[in-house]
Design a protein around this nucleic acid. Structure first.
Lengths: 134, 134
DNA sequence: CTGCATCCCAAAGGATACTG
DNA sequence: CAGTATCCTTTGGGATGCAG
């Protein structure tokens, strides 16, 4: 197993073996999802939330995608889904410890967006100008 | 319609006005993109990289999506695109200060993925078991 | 109320061929 | 080399109807 491949990159900042890299990639792909992040944020702020309310708070999500996203997050261990066997049905969602940790990790991006959105919009405008030189 | 709904959120941890919220949402939508994050990471680690090499390092990206992603990132002020007018053409990309700051912000998610990917996979397996009770 | 199933359309994305 | 243009497949996502 000790091939040359492992030795030659001892200066790498991250000790990413190809296999770990693939795993991490898989997670990033999954997690770098619009609805996942928004649901995560809502649950972080609101605690325990019911299905319909969650859809309202997220905003602009179809119930189809909401269901899909929630199932996926549940499968990934980010949230717990609790069904109260009453009529009418009552289902609520909340973050797991894992979910909270991801929310915290993503917080940096959120703060970045809050801090630099105007810089981004300015850059876009400048870019458009550059593309249209009369 | 709702009457009290607007007043009751003065205790929110984040001072998000509806307008800022929409802007931030827009940025998150844009930035919570698979290829954007991967390109960002490659450029963070490698510094200045050429088009083809970038595609190789990112891995699994079609040149169509790579081009699209790069254009978008350039427009958003995350990267600079430098064209060297030689034959054959030589174009390289590097992060701007803004791009580096986003990379840093996203670093938390990266570390999260590295730390918890096995927890996620375990959760998935447990979930599958739960769904197949005989 | 919560969601699954279906139909259907629009957008994302891959493969390939071609150009400066 | 660094794209653009084209075609085609996959996925996203809205609408509706229905069940528990």
């Amino acid at each position: 197993m000790e091939s040359i491949a492992e030795i030659q990159r001892s200066d790498s900042a991250k000790p990413s073996t190809p296999e770990i890299d693939a795993l991490v990639r898989e997670i990033i792909d999954r997690v770098a999802d619009k609805w996942t992040m928004l649901v995560l944020e809502v649950l972080e702020e609101q605690g325990t939330v019911r299905f319909t309310r969650l859809g309202e708070l997220v905003g602009g999500v179809s119930q189809k995608m909401l269901t899909k996203t929630l199932r996926q997050m549940e499968s990934d261990g980010l949230i717990v889904r609790t069904v109260h066997p009453v009529i009418p049905p009552h289902v609520d969602y909340q973050l797991t410890e894992l979910g909270r940790s991801l929310s915290e990790a993503f917080c940096g991006v959120w703060l970045w967006a809050e801090k630099y959105h105007d810089a981004v919009f300015a850059a876009r405008q400048a870019f458009r100008q550059r593309q249209r030189p009369a």
